[in-house]
Design a protein around this nucleic acid. Structure first.
Lengths: 343, 343
DNA sequence: CTGAAAGCGCTAACAC
DNA sequence: GTGTTAGCGCTTTCAG
């Protein structure tokens, strides 16, 4: 006689009670239970009481899967995130609150070495998220387009000219320009940029750096970096010692922090021997020990506006694609200083 | 005539194609399509080809909700996380990879100000996660028990004596003891502890601190702190200036970092004026600028073991509750130094 | 090899 | 007020 376990089911305690079990135990129909559970008008106070009590006692929890299938909506908002990026963490916390109060739920799609952006987005879509919030997406526009087609998406942190995709971002160009201006004002002329790799935002900042240098009549040098501390540190190997470089404009705070680490481990003091500026003004940058000169891009405001845009779309706002560009704010701290006088 | 939009449906592009649409377009039954899509044996090569092509062309994506409902399993592993905690971020990335390679998927349940641990866990359960990984849960055991009952759970970072709940944690007691020993060896006697609030791990470390102090015949003083930089900084206000305190054992790196920030903003140099030690050895602590003396608790190893435990349970391992205690490793860096000689 | 049909647990008309 | 019923999109026997 074959054993009678449910197919390929994982070890699981006794079967979860369903709405039917509750209905039976309360002596009513499942339809009624459903209404009670959803607080919809109809059921009498007495029934409501009883059903609720029974449900509670049985430890009943609605099966969201079934609910969603039946309702054909999820009230889910998907957010792509790099967990080890503190700036993403900050944004995510803010987003979570906003989404919460709007009566939706967030689901975080992690991007890691083994789980790239495409997969993260696909996962989110598979969860039937009704809207997507992409934190600093790095995929090329052309690949992103078909992926998010048909689902209200807001892109946080980079420009993206796709129909149906709203954008909330900081003015990266201005931010980088401010950094370069600041360094030039301090007397630096050998200013290099350690970029953020192949992503789109990286390209934007790279261009902004080049434009700013040109404006000052200075030569631009770009070193390929990346999104992590480690990649930032590694970029230093590509810096020629004799190049007369006295300042580095890093892609973001993580890159900058990695650079500072690498510099100081080689005995180069920051800012005495080298000025370093970041981007994001993350918790890391704010700390007096790090005291990173960086660019603040109002994460809270970005989170608020991004969620707002998504909710608006979900509420039927069919208006034009929005592109909200927030001003950046240069935050000058101790990691940048006057250029050393040449010997 | 009533309009015919689906009930309360959010704005959504044309309806997503279902398996039925694909079946119709391919001229086969939906059952067959299902089989093809799942790669199960049966369909002929020709049909497989055709169905796959049609599905691709229509941009078909399976509705996970429906799939799950039908299969009665999700292959989902839920992870609770504090997004702004860098240590959690590190753990999460590692977990994600491990879970990935095991053929499961992770869903992150964020804990924030508006979304407490209970809600995060409930959300995860509502997603029908088959197993739960709780990162440093703070809820009292008695409240946690009914919540996670019946679902394989592994608790990361704190002891938890609950049937069916495996534990992977570092030896906090040893870790704190090492810190205290280290400080005592440096000549400190006025050593206070800024704790992590009301959570369980906080209690464990508090006790460990008290025990270590007692062992050295020193008076213990505990200042209430918290899990964030801000709360760490705030704790300083509660420190009496005349107390002869020369060293602080902080609950974790975030608390320590907050303390250092607050101390240095008051002109107290670390470690010259005050030694500060953290716990976690997060990315933050490792940076030379922060150079935090702290306790490493092998996050990668913890992630690996935690996922392993969860997968084992899901694979039918009904063995005894496991409690894996990893050794900690004191990492001495620049934030602790010799006690100032008293005047 | 393919199709038909019975659910999965819940919601939402629509009757009673 | 309360019960009945028809799905939601998919998987999975079980026949053909």
């Amino acid at each position: 006689m074959p054993d009678h376990t449910p197919p390929a089911s994982p070890r699981q305690g006794r079967r979860r009670p369903t709405i039917l079990d509750v209905a039976a135990a309360a002596g009513v129909s499942k339809g009624l239970v459903s209404k009670v559970l959803n607080g919809s008008a109809g059921p009498s106070a007495a029934t409501t009481q009883r059903v609720l009590a029974v449900a509670e006692r049985m430890g009943y929890r609605k099966d969201r899967t079934a609910t969603l299938l039946a309702q054909r909506r999820t009230r889910l908002i998907g957010v792509t995130i790099i967990p080890s990026n503190l700036y993403h963490g900050e944004l995510a916390e803010e987003i979570q609150s906003m989404v919460d109060t709007a009566g939706y739920e967030t689901v975080l799609g992690a991007m890691t070495a083994t789980h790239d952006e495409r997969r993260a987005i696909e996962t989110l879509i598979d969860f039937r998220c009704e809207a997507l919030l992409l934190l600093g997406p790095t995929m090329p526009e052309a690949e992103l387009a078909p992926l998010v087609e048909g689902i209200p998406t807001v892109c946080v942190g980079r420009p993206l000219n796709l129909p149906g995709v709203d954008v909330v971002r900081a003015d990266d160009k201005q931010g980088i320009a401010d950094v370069v201006d600041h360094l030039v004002a301090l007397g630096h002329r050998g200013i290099v940029h350690v970029d953020g790799g192949t992503g789109h935002i990286a390209a934007v900042r790279r261009r902004a750096y080049r434009a700013a240098m040109r404006r000052h009549g200075l030569d631009a040098t770009v070193l390929s970096g990346g999104l992590t501390e480690h990649q930032g540190a590694a970029a230093l190997k590509r810096l020629r010692a004799d190049a007369g470089v006295t300042a580095i404009v890093a892609y973001n705070d993580r890159t900058a922090v990695g650079l500072i680490e690498a510099l100081e481990s080689r005995g180069v003091n920051v800012p005495a021997g080298m000025s370093v500026a970041g981007f994001d003004d993350s918790l890391m940058a704010r700390h007096p020990r790090m005291a990173l000169t960086t660019v603040n891009q109002s994460p809270i405001e970005q989170a608020r506006l991004a969620v707002q845009a998504a909710i608006d779309r979900l509420s039927g706002d069919d208006g034009e694609r929005r592109e909200i560009v927030l001003p950046t704010r240069l935050v000058i701290r101790g990691s940048t200083g006057a250029a050393p006088v040449s010997p």
